[in-house]
Design a protein around this nucleic acid. Sequence first.
DNA 1: CAAGAACCGTACCGTACGGTACTTTATGAG
DNA 2: CTCATAAAGTACCGTACGGTACGGTTCTTG
Lengths: 218, 218
Amino acid sequence: MSKPEQDQFSPRQSAVLEEALRLLVEGGEKALTTAGVARAANCSKESLYKWFGDRDGLLAAMIAYQASKVRTYEPAGGKLTREELRAHLLTFVRDLVDVLSGDVSLALNRLSIGQAGAGGGKLGRLMLERGRGPIGKRAMALLDAGRRSGLLDFSDGGEAYQTLYGLAVSDLHVRMLLGVSPETARKEFGSRAERAVDAFLRLFGAANKWEEPRIRHA
Amino acid sequence: MSKPEQDQFSPRQSAVLEEALRLLVEGGEKALTTAGVARAANCSKESLYKWFGDRDGLLAAMIAYQASKVRTYEPAGGKLTREELRAHLLTFVRDLVDVLSGDVSLALNRLSIGQAGAGGGKLGRLMLERGRGPIGKRAMALLDAGRRSGLLDFSDGGEAYQTLYGLAVSDLHVRMLLGVSPETARKEFGSRAERAVDAFLRLFGAANKWEEPRIRHA
DNA sequence: CAAGAACCGTACCGTACGGTACTTTATGAG
DNA sequence: CTCATAAAGTACCGTACGGTACGGTTCTTG
């Protein structure tokens, strides 16, 4: 079993994990052998096992390492204007799609999903905690700010967030996980961000604050 | 490489594939060894290789076999009333969630996704064609009928379908793929179907046909 | 400088699995 | 009855990979 929680990695270890991520992105899980990582990173297998315990520990460390690179900045807590909220929602949606369509994110999600048997794998839980968690927290904070500013109307923030997520991502993520190239997907979803935010505001905008946007589906 | 397209399977072969699916659902990909399938199905490895070519052929056959079991009935083509359209949308959404949260569907998606390297695996394409394709066709036909009946207003059916899909599924599918138990997910998403359909109709309902439903998010 | 730790490179081991070959048993046609 | 085909069961082979051991080299530290 993998080594105890040790979320900080030495520079050397980070370099090794970086190399491991590169291998994973290039060749999928089958390409991620301990010998391969050692060779690519110019380190010894013995060090790998000393640092990460076993192969599963290495995989978990890769996820933790990648998650540690994502800065989940909190938006300012003050009052928001309509335009600010809309702009923040738009950047959130764009960031979300960018993250989900990133090479490394796709590779790690594939890895965790492939690993997740019926019993529910450890890696899947890690991805949910370290990946989705922070993103969701950021979005919920933004939505809450919108409500406090009188611009949004909802009772269950989770429900609102789920709706926003669904509008923004739809089946894009799974399709990419199944092999649709991120370029193709991004092209197809290029104009989706605005539409998603508009739809979200039509559904959850406080009635008196948003002149019902008249979107003609031309 | 796998055997040529041969979408029909003999009863014996179907029984073997059924057993293989059972193994996959129970233990994930690692449990799906050729020897294991042969043992569980009381057949010889030699027969497996004769029928399916190699292991990848077996995996592809499992996907094709499972897809062949799903009947994608076309809804009637006549005019729809408001209530009929809403009911059809609701059953579609419920069916969709049921399918996606099914044991076999999850296992096959995990398999295909785990297989799908950067180069885009063959299995992923199969899942997209045989799984998503028919479901999407059915939904598009329904949406089109709604538009022809003057109840829906959209120009791009694909866009409307993506919206419906996103509202209905959100990140439910990926979370289940990562290991969230279908029971948990289904509970969390139990009441979502109506909300998704309502939201969809608010977004795409023809303006004069649907008295703007005043949903208070109590 | 000396002692020790950290670590690289390589060689090694056991095993599990994909794939093949062979023998035996059943079935069905001529 | 006889022969051929199909398929079960088993034994086998090669290899690839996870994990360990060890000798040599560099780096730190007193």
